[in-house]
């Protein structure tokens, strides 16, 4: 978090983490498409030629004045592919909260676990842990066939009983609810 009382700004860093092709960028694209252009910056995407996130996506949101202060939110996604581990470490640095975008499809459970373990490893490097760090789970792709039930997902992924939301990021369902929860968790930690 970054506080600037001269400009009366408070900036929060929210990082979208999760396996590749899980819908992290789709979350940001939906937010970008729905927010008043006066209250957001341009969506920065650093992609490969194959349209996969290479380094990160970045979107800045603001809410106007709240009690005379100007809250801003810096939203980042991480590249999901395993070989971009260093990029993830860098982007996670200084995060105030994490949105873990899990893929609800049964065949993707292994990837969800691996990425969650990777997140914990990266947090430990910063002397943090999933047990106490503010994070929220988003069970994405609820509209696809062959998905796990929410109960099964809760058992398999939500070991620490953190808040969760079901989502269909491509249709916008659950996107803002998840972001709101992440912001509230970040604020509660200050």
């Amino acid at each position: 978090m970054h506080v600037d009382p001269f400009r009366k700004e408070i900036i929060f860093k929210i990082v979208y983490y999760g396996p590749g092709l899980g819908g992290k960028t789709t979350n940001l694209e939906f937010i970008y498409s729905q927010i008043n252009p006066k209250l957001r910056g341009e969506l920065v995407t650093l992609k490969t030629k194959e349209d996969r996130t290479l380094y990160f996506d970045f979107l800045q949101l603001e809410l106007g004045r709240v009690n005379g202060k100007k809250p801003r939110f810096h939203l980042y996604t991480i590249p999901g592919q395993v070989y971009y581990g260093y990029s993830r470490k860098i982007i996670l640095k200084g995060a105030d909260a994490v949105v873990f975008v899990a893929d609800s499809q049964s065949v993707r459970m292994d990837e969800n676990w691996k990425t969650l373990a990777d997140l914990e490893e990266k947090l430990i490097l910063q002397n943090k842990s999933l047990t106490s760090f503010p994070w929220v789970l988003q069970y994405n792709k609820r509209d696809l066939p062959n998905i796990e039930t929410v109960r099964a997902l809760q058992t398999k992924l939500n070991f620490f009983n953190v808040p969760f939301h079901e989502a269909m990021a491509n249709k916008g369902q659950g996107v803002f609810e998840t972001l709101r929860t992440a912001i509230q968790l970040a604020l509660a930690k200050v």
């Binding site: 978090m1 506080v3 009382p5 408070i10 729905q34 927010i35 008043n36 209250l39 809410l63 106007g64 709240v66 009690n67 202060k69 809250p71 803002f176 609810e177 972001l179 709101r180 912001i183 509230q184 604020l187 200050v190």
Partner: peptide, 24 residues
């Protein structure tokens, strides 16, 4: 401490503003 800048009133109003902006 930055917490001195984030008073209770701000925290409460921020939640309402998020709902309005995010149409929740």
């Amino acid at each position: 401490k930055a917490t001195e800048f984030l008073d209770d009133e701000f925290r409460s109003l921020l939640g309402k503003e998020l709902d309005k902006s995010f149409r929740l």
